[in-house]
């Protein structure tokens, strides 16, 4: 598969400069530092307690936070040495579609649209992200699928799925 090889070489780390610093790796290290600081800040806010154990609820967070900070440092070392495996070029568009799909579903559920509509938006946008057009069609397929899933899991297995615009009508049908 020659095409596979070509694309691999076009990734963030070209063949010739395998010792160049891996920017993505540095990003991970930064994330780890921020996270470690967050854990430590949270642990420092607990009220002081006295107990026989001599170690309170803050000790484990400090240990974990310190560990994450140490691995952040090691991640920088790895990124500088180019120890991360080669990656293909990142295809942003589909990832954004999928993130929009999950985000859209969450927003719609908070807005009270109910499970079926929210989940159909998820399905429609996710299928679009994988290249299936047009969006109205993928949404409709999702609507059909989710109506079936709702009946199966709500009525069949008794899973509590949030109701909204469509669900009351389906519930009436199965009463």
């Amino acid at each position: 598969m020659a095409t596979h090889e070509d694309k691999g070489a076009g990734a963030s780390r070209p063949d010739g400069s395998s010792r160049a610093t891996d920017i993505g790796g540095l990003g991970i290290a930064l994330g780890l530092f921020v996270f470690a600081a967050l854990i430590a800040w949270d642990a420092s806010s607990y009220p002081e307690r006295r107990s026989y154990a001599q170690i309170g609820p803050e000790i484990f967070p400090y240990i974990v936070g310190a560990g994450i900070a140490i691995f952040g440092v090691l991640t920088i070392v790895m990124a500088r040495r180019g120890d991360f495996p080669e990656r293909e070029a990142l295809n942003f568009a589909p990832v954004l579609w999928l993130l929009a799909a999950l985000g859209g579903m969450t927003a719609l559920l908070y807005a009270g649209s109910g499970f079926i509509i929210a989940s159909s938006v998820l399905f429609g946008l996710a299928a679009r992200g994988f290249g299936r057009k047009p969006v109205w069609l993928t949404f409709l397929v999702g609507l059909l699928l989710n109506c079936m899933l709702y009946v199966l899991f709500r009525q069949g297995l008794g899973l509590s799925l949030p109701g909204g615009l469509i669900e009351p009508y389906i519930n009436v049908l199965f009463r």
Binding site: L98, A101, L102, S119, L122, F123, G124, A126, A127, R128, G129, F130, G131, R132, T138, V141, G142, L145, N146, L149
Partner: peptide
């Protein structure tokens, strides 16, 4: 693929 992975996410 689109149907499969959209189904998995759903």
């Amino acid at each position: 693929k689109p149907w499969l992975y959209a189904g998995i996410m759903t």
